[in-house]
């Protein structure tokens, strides 16, 4: 996993609530057996009509907006557990998703792939969306060490588990740690009374 420290970027606004992972990456694009190239099909059915004709009114096809930060409505990433959703956002070029609420499994998948979910208050989210829409060149700073997101002199803090934060800052995965405690896992197995 790549290290994450700080992102300073413009943002792409997507003020839609309950964006599920089927929208982020439809099931028919889950047939690959590797992790590459999912960004091409990110938001496929919102992005294209009749297969590959870009839908003009969809924000990813609007050159006004670009950047490494996606700003979306509440309950982002609900539905299917497909990690392909995190892979496709990351592969497309997003490093941060800002929302007022994230679905659990998506949040975990994002953190396991160096994509930072930044949960802010609904009020802050609406302010950020309005600002980006009014001025697409607004620069937003997401700083992991201080756990803050700021733009135009406004700032909000966000939660991130202390262990997960260390992983992101250093580019470690859970698997590295779990493999390192195999002796303890074996000791647990020997003592477990679960059938």
């Amino acid at each position: 996993m790549e290290k994450f420290n700080k992102v300073v970027s413009t943002a792409v606004p997507m003020p839609i609530e309950d964006i599920d992972t089927d929208q982020i990456i439809p099931a028919r694009f889950l047939k690959a057996t590797n992790r590459d190239g999912f960004g091409d099909n990110l938001f496929r059915d919102w992005r294209y009509v009749k297969g590959d004709e870009p839908k003009k009114d969809f924000v990813l096809n609007d050159s006004t907006y670009s950047g490494e930060i996606l700003v979306a409505g509440r309950n982002f990433g609900c539905g299917s557990s497909r990690e392909h959703a995190a892979w496709s956002l990351y592969d497309y070029g997003f490093k941060v998703v800002v929302s007022s609420f994230f679905a659990d499994i998506f949040k975990g998948n994002a953190l396991n792939n160096g994509l930072l979910p930044v949960q802010v208050s609904e009020e802050f989210l609406q302010e950020l969306l309005a600002t980006v829409k009014a001025n697409p060149s607004t620069e937003i700073t997401v700083d992991l060490p201080s756990q803050t997101i700021s733009f135009d002199g406004k700032s909000d803090s966000f939660e991130v588990n202390s262990y997960k934060k260390e992983c992101l800052l250093n580019g470690y995965d859970d698997i590295d740690y779990l493999v390192s405690i195999k002796n303890e896992i074996e000791a647990y197995e020997a003592s477990s009374t679960v059938i």
Binding site: E83, G108, N113, D174, I175
Partner: peptide, 22 residues
């Protein structure tokens, strides 16, 4: 509960997951 593919690999490698208690 459902998990992502990185976690599938973790369970394959260690039979464990790192989870915050819901």
């Amino acid at each position: 509960f459902g998990i992502g593919t990185s976690q599938v690999a973790q369970v394959m490698a260690t039979q464990c997951l790192m989870q915050s208690r819901p």
